[in-house]
Design a protein around this nucleic acid. Structure first.
Length: 363
DNA sequence: AATGCGGGGTG
DNA sequence: CACCCAGCATT
């Protein structure tokens, strides 16, 4: 799936690195250090948490625990107190366990390999790569929300980025894009800076982007469609058929109850899928002259999808049928009637055809 | 492969 | 109000 052109892949990193050194962030509290402890602490706090939220917590942590050994020696309760308000409290427990583990297993020094780092508590593949890159120049790829957004847009990758299939492809692409070791810090910081700044979720600043000439989403105008959202749960579907009973001049409609779906509006007489048009016509005491099926109409509500199969039914000139909730609406008044939008649209599309009833398009 | 975890920001 | 955010661990 990824464009296998090696030159294009290299171009991605070199442009990003140059841009980061020129325009990226360089003064965040956890930058300008190679201390794995400080880098690790920031990466854990930044999991699912925005930069502005983290900054004050990060400062307080370093004040309370200047070194990894201080953190490992502290009681967990103290760590939790300082974490209070940051959320995802398992991170704090894992943080403490990780400090203890690094002291016990590695003499207080993080191992300089993402594979080993990822074995530690609270550290997954992406966080391990970030620590490895920032602290040791390791050539390892991160894949967080920012990176997913940049990659799906730049390479036009469809599908929900959280799905295993798409995510697998994104990891492979992220690794194929990595620059050589000396550029790993600027590259890793750059792809996050780009995602957090220019390549924002809405209204990305494409004109300022160092990758604009390579970006598939920009070229195709699909910035707002990528990355694709999480597919909603399968909405329940309801199938109904509805007859457009008309005598050439007027349509038979039903006034719905004041509350509930389409409360108080006029709609087509509905039936289940079982009841045929003739049966329904007979039930309503209509003289059915002709019936033709129309293409099904889909309409989505908050909690379900309605699939409406309309029948266009010509009926004989009928007596009033005024009783109850029935009303005859002239075709000419469809536009201004109190009809649900999809029904009105359907009827307006048919109105022209009524002027020339013989115009039976072949379809 | 899907869920829970959490507080804060945004359209 | 729904969705997203420098994800990970657990089921």
């Amino acid at each position: 799936m990824p464009p296998a052109d090696p030159a294009a892949l290299r171009e991605f990193a070199s442009r990003l690195v140059a841009w980061q050194r020129r325009e990226g962030r360089h003064d965040l509290p956890w930058q300008n250090t190679r201390d794995p402890y400080r880098i690790w602490l920031s990466e854990i706090m930044l999991q699912q948490t925005q930069v502005s939220t983290v900054i004050p917590y990060y400062a307080r942590f370093l004040e309370a625990f200047p070194t990894l050994a201080d953190l490992a020696a502290a009681p967990l309760e103290r760590v939790l107190e300082l974490w209070s308000g940051l959320g995802y409290y398992a991170r704090a427990r894992h943080l403490h366990a990780c400090a203890v583990a690094v002291c016990a297993q590695y003499g207080g020094h993080f191992p300089p390999s993402p594979e080993l780092i990822a074995q530690l508590p609270g550290i997954g593949r992406s966080t391990a790569a970030a620590i490895g890159a920032f602290a040791f120049d390791c050539r390892a790829a991160i894949l967080d929300g920012n990176v997913k957004r940049v990659l799906t847009r730049c390479f036009g990758i469809a599908g929900f980025p959280g799905s295993p299939r798409v995510e697998k492809g994104l990891w492979a692409l992220a690794e194929a894009l990595l620059p050589e070791a000396p550029d790993m810090v600027a590259y890793t910081q750059g792809i996050m800076d780009l995602g957090a700044g220019l390549c924002a979720r809405s209204k990305p600043a494409c004109v300022l982007c160092p990758l604009q000439e390579h970006c598939v989403a920009r070229r195709e105008g699909r910035q707002e469609e990528l990355p694709e959202g999480k597919p909603g749960k399968a909405v329940p579907e309801r199938q109904v058929s509805a007859c457009i009973f008309h005598d050439g001049e007027r349509i038979l409609l039903e006034r719905r109850p004041p509350s509930g779906i389409w409360g108080g509006l006029l709609t087509l007489p509905e039936a289940g899928t079982e009841e045929s048009a003739p049966a329904q016509a007979q039930r309503l005491g209509l003289d059915l002259l002709a019936a033709a099926p129309l293409p099904p109409l889909r309409h989505t509500f908050t909690h379900f999808r309605l699939i409406l199969s309309p029948w266009l039914c010509r009926v004989g000139p009928e007596r009033m049928l005024r009783e109850g909730s029935w009303e005859w609406l002239p075709w000419s008044r469809v536009g201004e009637a109190a009809l649900p939008a999809p029904i009105k649209k359907l009827l307006l599309g048919l109105e022209g055809a009524q002027a020339a009833p013989s115009a039976s398009s072949g379809n």
